[in-house]
Nucleic acid binder design. Sequence first.
RNA 1: GGAGUCGUGGCCGAGUGGUUUAAGGCGCACGCCUGGAAAGCGUGUUGGGUGGCAACGCCCUCGAGGGUUCGAAUCCCUCCGACUCCGCCA
Length: 427
Amino acid sequence: MFDLKFIRENPQDFDRALARRGEEAQSATILSMDADHRALLTEAQEAQARRNEASKLIGRAKGQGNEDEAQALMAEVSELKSKIAELEDKERTIGDALTTLLMSLPNALYDDVPEGADEDDNEEVRTWGTPRTFDFEPKEHFDLGEALGGMDFERAAKLSGSRFVILKGEVARLERALGQFMIDLHIREHGYTEVWTPALVREAALLGTGQLPKFGDDAFTTNTDHWLIPTSEVTLTNVHAGEILDEADLPIRMTAHSQCFRAEAGAAGRDTRGMIRQHQFEKVEMVSVTTPEQSDDELDRMTACAEEVLKRLELPYRLMKLCSGDVGFGARRTFDLEVWLPGQGKYREISSCSTCGDFQARRMKTRCRQRGEKQTRFVHTLNGSGLAVGRTLIAVMENYQEADGTIRVPHVLQPYMGGLQVIGTGA
RNA sequence: GGAGUCGUGGCCGAGUGGUUUAAGGCGCACGCCUGGAAAGCGUGUUGGGUGGCAACGCCCUCGAGGGUUCGAAUCCCUCCGACUCCGCCA
C-alpha cells in the first residue's frame, strides 16, 4: 500500500509508477478524496473537542450543584452530537473508499526493473551449469513417474479432480527428501529459523501480504471464513503483523516447509499434464523482515540461498530479472530461478525471490524502531521460494533419468533416502 | 460443541457513568546527588491521525467494531483472544 504523504508530495512520481504497471493515473482522484477526507476530519475533531470540553464542564457544574448551567451545557452538547455523528459518517465513508482504492493498487517498481509486457521480456542475469547431453530421448516427468508407478494422476483425479497427484514409493520418498534437504540447508547454513505455521488463515493475513482484495479467485476458502494459504509467505510475513520490532533484531529470517493451495482460476489449459501446476503442492519458503537499509542486500542474499539449493542438486538453471509486466502485485523487484527441464527442453520457473519494500508492512502495520529512538518506521519484507518442492522433484527426475527409465538420486539427497542411489531398480 | 471467568500502557496492577490529566508499582531513559557506583530524589516514558512556517494544539486509542448517554475503561450488542470445567479427539 502506498503512503498518502508520498502521493501528496510526489503525485507525478506516483502516477508514473502506476503507468509502469499499466494502471491509470490516480493521483488526482486520490488527492481530491484525501483533501475532502482531511477537511471532514478536521471539522469533526473540532466539534469533538468542543463536546469534550463542555462535557467536562457539565461534570463540574453538577459537582458544584449548579443545575442551570449544567442544563444549558447539556443542550449545547446534545446539538453537537448529531453534527458529530453526521461528520463522522461522511468521514468514514470517504476514508474507507480511499483505503479500498489504495489497497487495490500494485507496488511501485524499482527504477532498474526492465520495461516489458510479459515473461518473454524478462532479462537473463546469468546461467549456471550445463544441460546434460542425452544419448536417448529424455522423457517428461509424468511419463517417467507413471512408468515407475510413483505418480498416479488418474487415481488422484478420482479423489480430487484435475491438478492433483498421488505420489508413491520411492518417488514419494524423493519428494519428502527434497523438502527435508532444502529446509535443512537454510537453517544450518543460511541463518534462517525454521517455522511451522497454519495453512488456514483469516482474511486479514491475505490483505496484509496483498493477495486480497484483488486476487481472491486464486485462493481456496472454507466454510469457516478461513482461506487456504497459497504460499507460506502469507503466514511467515504476517507473523509480526501489528508489532513494533527492535531494529537490533533485524533482519529476521524465517523459513517454512508447507503445503500451498492455489485455485489456478486463470490458468485453464496451461500445464494441464503432470505436476508443474497443481492445486496443492509443497514449497520451502524464505521470508526476511529487514530495515529499509538492509532490504536491497537481503534480496541478493536470499536469491543466492535459493540458487544454492539448485547448485547442491547439480541442476542447471538461469537467473532472470523480471520485467515490469511480470513482477507480482506486491513486489518492487523480483528474480526468478528457472531450472532446466530436459523432457520439455525448456527452462521453467522454480523459484521467485522478491522485495516488497514497505508495501506489505504498511498493510499489516509492522514497524521497527531503533532502541532509544521515539520514531517508528515500516519494515521491509522479502520473500522467496527455496524452492518449490514439486517442481524440484520434476527437475531431478528429468535431469537424472536414464535410458531404462530409472532415476539416479543426487548425492546430497542420498542420506535422506536411506542411502538409495537409484530409483526404479525394483530392489 | 455446552457452561462459566476474563481481556487496562513495555510489564504488574487499581479503577461499576463525570468533579480538568487511567491511581500506584516495576522496568527503561535522562538529570541531580557521588571520588565512582548503589541507594535516594526529580523529570520523562503507548501508538496513530490531524491543524500550524513554527511555537504549540486538537482528535482517536483501556482486545476489535457497533450502540446507549449531555458524557463510557465502566452499561448493552456482535466479533476476536486467553483461561477453567464438561463433551469429543490425534
